[in-house]
Computed example of a mutant assay.
Amino acid sequence: MTSAPSAVSTAAPLTCGSTRPQAQAVLAPALNVTEVFDSLAVLVNVMEASKTGELSTLWKFTDNGETACRCSNGTLIYYPDPKDTTAELTLIFSRTNLPAVLNANGSLPKNVRHHGEPGVLKRLLALLHKPEPARFAIVTP
């Protein structure tokens, strides 16, 4: 089986550095890894990311396998089950700790092991837009 880049889906955004952690605490565990990375991909600030060189990370989930993530040319692409595992930063942790890693503002939680430059995560998360709350009334029947 070859690793092909995953296409971005219409998954609801997972906010990083949210001011509403209670909403994230409910949403993040409900998403699978693919949906989380889809959500991150739609949040990339293309103008800022295109000015940045390539950022490469390898996410080793101790309970789910691996996902490689590359951000280059303003696009975030991830590879489930990657063949090329070279990266500037390798993160090793359980899937349940993913929300903590994404909300850590670049400093890694104590239960996350890593190899490489931890500043890569901070630079990657800094390229993500902060989602705005909906600005329309919800129509109810």
Rank of each mutant, 00 (worst) to 15 (best):
M1E: 08
M1P: 08
T2N: 12
S3H: 07
S6I: 13
S6L: 14
T10G: 15
A11C: 12
A11T: 14
P13Q: 05
T15A: 15
T15S: 13
T15V: 12
T19Y: 08
P21Q: 10
Q22Y: 12
Q22A: 15
A25I: 07
V26S: 11
L27P: 01
A30P: 05
N32A: 09
V36K: 02
V36C: 01
V42I: 10
E48F: 04
E54W: 04
S56R: 00
S56A: 03
S56N: 02
T57R: 06
F61H: 08
T62L: 15
N64S: 14
E66R: 11
T67F: 13
T67D: 08
C69V: 14
S72D: 06
G74I: 06
G74V: 07
I77L: 10
Y78V: 05
K83Q: 13
D84G: 09
T85Q: 09
A87T: 00
L89S: 05
L89A: 02
L89H: 00
T90R: 06
I92A: 13
I92M: 12
I92H: 04
F93E: 02
R95G: 01
R95V: 08
P99C: 10
L102R: 05
N105D: 14
P109G: 03
N111E: 08
V112L: 07
G116N: 00
P118W: 07
P118I: 07
P118D: 01
K122G: 01
A126T: 09
P131Y: 04
I138F: 14
V139G: 09
